[in-house]
Design a protein around this nucleic acid. Structure first.
Lengths: 367, 367
DNA sequence: CTGTTAGCGCATTCAT
DNA sequence: ATGAATGCGCTAACAG
């Protein structure tokens, strides 16, 4: 189509597989300055303000001049400078920041997807950054984004304390935390129904006669996991098991594998007849370990996964995208009218029975 | 800690599981105006420029005044306005845009993770948007980001033609496409070694005596998949199979399930002894379908997945994060020195043998 | 080491 | 329907 291009598709035939394939064509760029409103105005023979009107869309411009302006703009490759516009309009951007934890965690990305969906739907774009799950980097990352005058901050808190955001909150920036509540900061929050979801799973096991139920988790000192642990204990207490500590394997060290936790449980004096896991990683480990063993152990995992259906693994399922969507909607609502009480939204979970969690307890039932 | 907060942690005990949990505390915000350089300067008894110097870091300020300024800034919750700064500095922001396809596709997010890692390492932040894999939305989304004066554009192209970016390229904005090359646009590109990766997989099957090898893919008209198909055909041709069309099941309709494609292959007059898949989705479908059947079919999937090891599934593995990192590095390099020839980077794949791909062909070997 | 002047690109206010 | 002046918050280029 355009004359100056060509050769791109042909040049792309891979010639090597070691990672780098050399030059294709020369990127000659003349570095023209970017056209401004004034440039367009001059070329169209009108004032800058008239051009501005065309792009603001609000006030009216005669069809002919509008036409001339758009023509001139196209010729100059004009694109309005959002920086300048936002600055003039009192620092109101159309971006929302999302600060997530470890960027490689697919769960967070599902959440990001949900947020992005809602933002885009409302004309906002997402500024994304990650703390790498390092508590000390959270304020730094957040600060960098706030300097960009984002209209709202969606945050997966990792620092021990979010009180450093009090000032920003008073400036009117809505702050929404996702997956975990903030500490020492009033903020809207969206979390999963961690506790009740886990309790439901454990209840389904006690209903089948299980009493010796293992719980494995690593890490275990995060909000979500302490909630799940609480749900587990609560359901066991309801079934008459007051002390579950000997069935709990709680790690806080990445070096401890979920496999070893399961092993420790099953090799103990009084092994469990069922296991529930704190998260996806624990489920994967449990699957690997159980596969290598003869025991028939009931298993319910927290977090759904792609092959769970095929493998017949029962899970406490939830929708991370919905978690993000809820956060995104909250951000939009707060941007549109700041007032109102802080809200806590809990995204429901769903116990999906696929077989692994429906193995009854062995031996005499306690009926 | 802070007096005005409190109650947050306690208030978070879930009271319902239906998705919404009511108000917690009142978000009283007084909506103070944001402090500026001048406000800080006034409070510190210096000129605005001196405050500016403190935040620019370049020129020197006496320790005492610096101290006074930082003190004043803290009291006013001052944060430099990046909009204004960037505007003044000629529209140089520290953001890079990444436009991806369907935001729910975990592959893209892995890529995003890689990009983000490299950007953050170099002080840039990522503006994220998605086209939803809708060709017509690509120019719109891209335009919105370019208005924000991003320093580079990383794009997973979906529109049929990227020539609309020629103008921006001449303005000096580096453009990098990922996963697929651009059409009608000179741009740096990072892709997987789709063709050679698939060829390697098929060769490993022909080496085991397989000749009737199925290939399933849906969609199949995307760049990545036509490349993989080409690799498949090439390897088969090397093994003396000139026409593989009866083993190919190429869909371009989301309604066609990979299961049905596998079924169609295995129920044909001359069923294959091995199957290779075009992508992760096809692998999942093939697994589900093969599980329900008695046939022993060799299988190699394209794209690795979490449980592949446990299930013993051989795959053509690759590193999506590395794909992103390469793109991110390219963006940084281009930002730092624009010149130089266009580059094509190919990220290698790796055939991971886990058993499913090592099933020899049945019947007499062709030795 | 510090202050003054000017202007980045745009939109608001008030003209015409 | 269009134009002229003014300033958003900040920093380059100059003083001093």
């Amino acid at each position: 189509m355009t004359a100056s291009v060509g050769g791109c598709r042909r040049a792309l035939e891979p010639t090597s597989a070691v990672g780098f394939v050399g030059p294709i064509a020369d990127t000659e760029i003349s570095m023209q300055p970017r056209a401004t409103l004034h440039d367009v105005a001059r070329l169209a023979g009108v004032s800058a303000k008239t051009v501005s009107r065309v792009y603001s869309g609000s006030s009216s411009v005669s069809p002919e001049t509008r036409e001339r302006i758009l023509e001139a703009a196209k010729r100059l490759h004009f694109r309005p400078n959002t920086l300048a516009r936002n600055l003039r309009q009192g620092g109101k951007t159309a971006t929302v920041a999302f600060v997530m934890g470890d960027i490689r965690n697919p769960f967070y990305f599902q959440v990001a997807a949900g947020i992005e969906q809602e933002l885009t739907k409302n004309g906002f774009t997402m500024l994304l950054a990650s703390t790498g799950d390092a508590p000390e980097s959270e304020p730094v990352v957040v600060d960098a984004l706030l300097r960009q005058l984002v209209r709202a901050l969606v945050l997966i808190p990792i620092a021990g304390d979010q009180s450093y955001l009090e000032g920003e909150r008073h400036l009117g920036t809505p702050i929404i935390t996702v997956d975990r509540p903030a500490n020492d900061l009033v903020a809207d929050t969206v979390v999963l129904a961690n506790r009740s979801g886990m309790a439901e799973a454990v209840r389904s096991l006690t209903a089948l006669g299980h009493r010796r139920i293992g719980f494995i988790s690593n890490p275990s000192e995060m909000y979500t996991l302490t909630e799940r642990l609480a749900g587990y204990r609560q359901a066991l207490a309801e079934a008459g098991v007051a002390d579950s500590s000997s069935w709990e394997r709680l790690g806080n060290d990445r070096a401890i594998s979920p496999e070893s936790q399961v092993r420790s449980l099953l090799d103990s004096d009084d092994p469990p007849t069922a296991i529930v896991t704190g998260n996806n990683r624990a489920t994967m480990g449990a699957l690997r370990e159980l596969k290598a063993r003869p025991e028939e152990i009931a298993l319910i995992g927290f977090d759904d996964f792609e092959l769970a259906e095929m493998l017949g693994i029962s899970v406490v399922a939830h929708d991370p995208i919905e978690l993000g969507r809820a956060a995104g909607r909250l951000a939009i609502e707060r941007i549109e009218h700041h007032a109102g009480p802080t809200r806590l939204i809990e995204i429901p979970t769903r116990l999906v029975k696929r077989g692994s969690g429906e193995i009854p307890a062995p031996g005499p039932r306690a009926d």
